[in-house]
Design a protein around this nucleic acid. Structure first.
Length: 466
RNA sequence: GGUCCCUUCGUCUAUCGGUUAGGACACAUGGUUUUCAUCCAUGAAAGAGGGGUUCGAUUCCCCUAGGGACCGCCA
């Protein structure tokens, strides 16, 4: 058996959606698990809808989630001449024929079939006719001579043996009347020329596979192995499409999902390895196999994505987390001011415990970023005379402390609890509101230390609090 | 409508004929905690239905029901 080679073949007609990413991921992991290669093929032969910007976006998305393809990307439109050559070979071999039916004629037949409620299938009118009978005013399409008798069996690596009656597959068009090849032809030729050993793609391609196999057979090419993976469904159980919200990678990046977390989620969606839930990149390559892919479609579950993201945020290296946070803010929020970077980096230890996403961390560190505290209108009402006294007492005591630490702050707070005849909440809450503007937030010692003495003093003497 | 595929807790899944059907997320309750969280503990929660095969079926086979995909001179 030759070296394993897989590919991901998106058409650049929109941003990459999450189902496509999973297909790419499975192909990539399988090839890497088998020490093989993984290629990217851009299927841009739909000139109307394909856009260069989408191609770039797709490549960036794959990069973002950590999928690297081998070599240069393969651009289908550059290979059209090869595809046409194969069409003519098929024609010469007698495996294809010119069909002079007009589109109107075909439309008419489809309509009639619909009225009679019988399935439409092209009637193979020109399959055995001679070209000399051809109408002069019609440009023909070229159709593939599909098998009529018997059945075909696809030995699918995920679904097992799939048997189909050959006569349910029509004589499909391989060359349009404008001289351009169609998808099934191009895909088969490209996969062959790219030496694909395994084609792993969505379930929705199963019928195409039967057509493409017939092209391989007619050309006497070696047939690759196929694996059709179940589609990802929306929460309503329908095929996920680009139109569904929260379906593109960008949608996840925007809310602060980190790439590794999404990769891990997608890996476990429709694939499993015993009870293991968390897979590092290396582990996913090491353990990935086709046997672990389930047969039934799975639904996207946002709460699970968030939960895995939360796990990654809490467990990855803090330098790494900071870099990702920094990138995220630059891309989707506002850049972290350079003079605040150090403070935020040091505060990650406690900030991350309150976050499911990078966006949460961003929101949580706003109190550090702002020059002027934004008070929550309801919370500032909690600052009564008693609270004001606590704040000013604390401010006074703080001036005697030279270096802030939990050990130095604790006795001060305890003393204030006593002298003001209150409890921890009576001290902690006013201070938190004074320093962050909100009664919700990190622990009071964390807040104080993260801001630094100077800033704390400044905020405690804010005129709005006096 | 035709062809093909699928069916275990709400969700993702484990089980490769014998288990009190396991785990994770979500949910509920309790505990830790100055708040919100985190964290910890506990709990509720599943084999679509009906026939076979078998000493024994979630597991194998058939039927029914439900769901999905495809049925383009798109890819």
């Amino acid at each position: 058996m030759s070296k394993v080679a897989t590919r991901f073949a998106p058409s650049p007609t929109g941003p990459l959606h999450i189902g496509g990413v999973r297909t790419a991921l499975f192909n990539w992991l399988y090839s890497k698990n088998q020490n093989g290669n993984f290629f990217l093929r851009i299927e841009d032969t739909d000139k109307e809808r394909s856009k260069e910007e989408y191609k770039k976006q797709i490549i960036n998305s794959l990069k973002w989630i950590g999928i690297n393809f081998d070599g240069e990307e393969y651009v289908q439109s550059k290979k059209i001449d090869d595809h046409i050559k194969v069409v003519h070979e098929l024609l010469n071999k007698g495996s294809a024929y010119k069909c002079y039916c007009s589109s109107e004629e075909i439309e008419e037949q489809k309509k009639r079939a619909k009225q009679k409620k019988i399935p439409y299938i092209y009637d193979r009118k020109w399959r055995d006719k001679k070209d000399t009978d051809a109408p002069k005013d019609i440009k023909p399409v070229i159709r593939f001579k599909s098998k009529i008798d018997g059945t075909s069996i696809l030995k699918d690596l995920v679904q097992g043996d799939v048997e189909i009656e050959n006569n349910t597959i029509e004589d499909f068009i391989i060359l349009r009347n404008d001289g351009t090849p169609t998808y099934n032809l191009s895909a088969a030729v490209d996969d062959h020329q790219m030496n694909m050993s395994h084609i792993i793609r969505g379930d929705d391609h199963k019928i195409n596979t039967f057509k493409q196999i017939q092209i391989y057979q007619a050309m006497k090419w070696e047939i690759p192995s196929f694996a059709h993976i179940p589609l990802i469904h929306t929460i309503d159980g329908k095929k996920l499409s680009k139109r569904d919200k929260a379906s593109t990678l960008d949608d996840y990046s925007k809310i602060g999902i980190i790439p590794d977390a999404l990769r891990n989620y997608l890996l476990r969606l429709g694939w499993s390895y015993q009870d293991k839930e968390i897979f590092t990149l290396d582990e996913s390559i090491k353990y990935f196999n086709l046997e672990g892919i389930g047969k039934s479609p799975s639904k996207l579950d946002m709460s699970r994505i968030l939960s895995i993201n939360e796990h990654y945020i809490k467990n990855i290296d803090e330098n790494d987390l900071f870099n990702q946070l920094n990138q995220y803010c630059k891309l989707h929020k506002s850049e972290i001011k350079s003079d605040k970077k150090d403070k935020i980096k040091k505060s990650l230890t406690f900030l991350k415990n309150k976050a499911k996403t990078l966006e949460d961390i961003f929101n949580n560190f706003q109190y550090i970023m702002v020059d002027e505290v934004n008070f929550n209108q309801d919370d500032i009402k909690l600052i009564d005379d008693k609270a004001k006294k606590v704040i000013s007492d604390f401010s006074t005591k703080l001036s005697d402390v030279d270096k802030l630490s939990r050990e130095k702050l604790e006795p001060i707070v305890n003393e204030l609890i006593k002298s003001n005849d209150t409890n921890f909440k009576g001290v902690g809450q006013p201070l938190r509101i004074a320093l962050t503007g909100s009664k919700f937030g990190p622990g009071i010692y964390d807040i104080i230390i993260s801001l630094g003495k100077e800033e704390v003093s400044k905020r405690l003497t804010n005129k709005k609090l006096i």
